[in-house]
Design a protein around this nucleic acid. Structure first.
Lengths: 225, 225
DNA sequence: TGTACATCAGTGAACGCGCGTTCACTGATGTAC
DNA sequence: TGTACATCAGTGAACGCGCGTTCACTGATGTAC
């Protein structure tokens, strides 16, 4: 490993770190290569040695955010009843989101106008939370801790869900997977309302406790005990 | 009503209309007074006769969006079982959001950095959907169509919810109101994932049907039949 | 009903600002013989 | 081990762009007598 290559890696990490910091104050649409260069102590054009364009920097930051969230969620699941573990996933998401509101906004908020994430780099890290969630439900199902809720599904929804079940080799029925989707979107809805301050001023004082209540309801709906 | 005052009102409406249109292409952070002036066929400084600053225009557009959504939700609830009406609220939200993605993003997406909405103008229109939702649950509760779910709540959450119950004079118990909150955030979580394209590419083809399934689960959790 | 003055909409120029990206360049680092 | 050439990081100037906001102004509309 030559010194030059080493310096390059380090600078690359610096750029991502500075980008992260910048997001904390300005929001994805205002993310500026020139500001990154300034912070890096380098002339603006120099950044182009490391990053082909502003959009590429955005992609780096998106992947970075998804990965950090994914790591923290994975680390949090732990062991215990499916309900406990579900709660831990939700709390890990919220903890990260509250600590990193702009990075949360970057990946779960308004899409940056004019920017299209390259799928090949973005899809995998972007599915880590839902994968963890579905894995948890699958384990519970296989262990007989959660029942087939039964009921029917619209044809279109069933076929989409069946495709997912095939892709991931899931044993759980489509009806249960559908509930998993509702739990997934329910968790992020609750976290987004919290982080984006959608509850009126001074209405909810203990948002962390509210989230636990909300997720508790989702767990009920999923049939976890 | 003098012609001048009339012209003023008309121009004011034009400005809001143009702002709406602009949001369709650029996103709230890029909303530009100069572009509005151009579209209005007027020199950039002229807009300041109508609007004190860019932030004031943003506020107008936020109120405008909340109100249109509120109107459409109110119009959609209609009559029928609580479950049916809940579904209609959710579908009205989604329909509006899918038709007006950038206005939806303006009010439910990432907060615009550096902009703080003035509470006095923004809070009332901003609560219309949740008010409609809570009213629906309250009616169902009073009519004996939905039961007290029982169970306990963290002290902090209970006291926040009790404050809301008092403010709106609600008969339903805090435990039921808590479920209402989960349904509320659950609906917006599902709609946001849809509008912001969080489902991977080509995984969900019939998103409207998926929403009905998701809301169906929330209705189950609420104890609606 | 007509006149004198006040109000107001819109103009045009200017302010200072920041942005992404390109380009020809210098000088240091790396590599092949 | 030393030399010749290639690679690469960073410079500095420039491009064309758009932004929000202020200010002194003109000319039309409204109002009080």
């Amino acid at each position: 490993m030559t010194p030059r290559a080493l310096a390059r890696e380090q600078t690359m990490r610096e750029i991502v770190r500075i980008g992260r910091e910048q997001l904390a104050t300005v929001g994805p649409a205002e993310l500026s290569l020139r500001a990154v260069a300034r912070e890096l102590g380098v002339v603006s054009s120099a950044v182009y040695r490391y990053v082909a364009s502003r959009d590429e920097l955005l992609t780096l930051l998106i992947v970075d955010a998804y990965d950090e969230l994914g790591d923290e969620v994975d680390a949090a699941v732990g062991t215990g009843s499916p309900r406990t573990r579900l709660l831990r996933i939700a709390e890990a998401v919220r903890t990260w989101a509250v600590r990193e509101p702009s990075r949360y906004a970057l990946i779960f908020g308004t899409p940056v106008p004019g920017y299209a994430a390259p799928r090949d780099q973005t899809v995998d890290p972007g599915t880590r939370v839902v994968v963890a969630l579905v894995a948890l439900i699958e384990e519970a199902y296989v262990a007989g801790q959660v029942a087939d809720p039964g009921g029917s599904l619209p044809r279109t929804v069933r076929s989409d869900l069946d495709a997912i079940r095939r892709e991931y080799g899931l044993a759980m029925p489509a009806t249960l997977l559908a509930r998993g989707f509702a739990v997934w979107t329910g968790i992020f809805g609750a976290v987004s309302f919290d982080v984006f301050d959608q509850y009126g001023p001074d209405t909810i004082t203990d948002r962390s406790a509210l989230l636990r209540v909300q997720v508790g309801l989702l767990a009920d709906a999923l049939g976890l005990d």
